[in-house]
């Protein structure tokens, strides 16, 4: 099946979902794309790491 979104569009959606709720159609398109694309899966892992980094940073600063 051809991918409905380009990697660039999916990368933008992966960033956007950190700050706003995405419409169902975009979430679905993104999921389908991620299931078939190693590049975007790698980028998603980086974004998830960034998400954890922010959480750790808040904890670190709230800790000496």
């Amino acid at each position: 099946m051809p991918l409905r979104h380009t990697c660039k569009e999916v990368a933008a959606l992966l960033i956007a979902r950190e700050d706003r709720a995405l419409p169902l159609s975009q979430r679905l398109g993104m999921r389908l794309h991620l299931a078939m694309c190693a590049g975007c899966t790698g980028f998603e892992r980086q974004i998830l790491t960034m998400h954890n980094v922010m959480k750790q940073w808040r904890n670190y600063e709230a800790s000496d």
């Binding site: 991918l3 380009t6 990697c7 660039k8 569009e9 694309c37 190693a38 590049g39 975007c40 790698g42 980028f43 892992r45 980086q46 790491t49």
Partner: peptide, 10 residues
Amino acid sequence: GHFAQVPADW
């Protein structure tokens, strides 16, 4: 619009 290179594995 597709990745030319897979993003680095962190």
